[in-house]
């Protein structure tokens, strides 16, 4: 019977271990964000916020910025950049526009999520103004251009000569409605 008590005790400890592992799986979610914040890698939050920047042009360098627009879940919208790409000098402020057209047949609120490739350029791409900072409301059939202003930090590594800025529009109607 001593044996049995010892077995049950160890079993309970191991069950506790298993529960701890289950909790650890969920703890990885905030840990992942912490890691992204620390390294700045793939950090969507920083990309989706306005950053202060001062002009400090380095006209000796030219970088190509490509613009992409994607629509996985918002349904029947048109969404495209006004120009496909721009030649920019680091440290100079630029502006461009993306155009969206709501063809869904109903009022829609959508949130654009930005992404920068290559990842190592993300920390040097500063947006002073962007339609991705807030949810965008579009009435039925509404079409309008949306502004983005950006500066590429002159400290960006020499090896980067091409940056892709992409936006993905997500339907946020239900989520935003539930916040109000």
């Amino acid at each position: 019977m001593e044996q049995r008590a010892a077995n049950n005790k160890l079993m309970l400890k191991l069950l506790g271990f298993a529960l701890g592992s289950f909790a650890f799986g969920f703890a990885l979610v905030p840990l992942y964000d912490v890691l992204c914040d620390l390294t700045g890698f793939g950090n969507q939050r920083a990309l989706a916020q306005a950053r202060e920047a001062t002009e400090n042009p380095d006209d000796s360098r030219t970088i190509t910025v490509d613009f992409l627009a994607e629509l996985p879940s918002v349904g029947n919208w048109e969404f495209r950049p006004l120009v496909g790409s721009m030649q920019v000098h680091p440290g100079r402020l630029y502006a461009t526009e993306f155009i969206a057209h709501n063809l869904t047949g109903q009022d829609t609120i959508a949130q654009a999520v930005p992404n920068i490739a290559p990842g190592r350029a993300a920390g040097y791409f500063r947006k002073t103004d962007c339609f991705c900072f807030t949810p965008q409301k579009f009435a039925v059939g509404e079409q309008r251009p949306m502004l983005v202003r950006f500066i590429v930090d002159p400290a960006i590594p020499r090896s980067v000569d091409r940056i892709t800025l992409s936006y993905t529009f997500y339907d946020e109607s239900t989520r935003v409605a539930s916040l109000n």
Binding site: A18, F24, G25
Partner: peptide, 14 residues
């Protein structure tokens, strides 16, 4: 197994 199967369970629960 005890350390990792619960992590999979967590991931699929998410």
């Amino acid at each position: 197994l005890i350390a990792t199967m619960p992590v999979l369970a967590g991931a699929v629960t998410m």
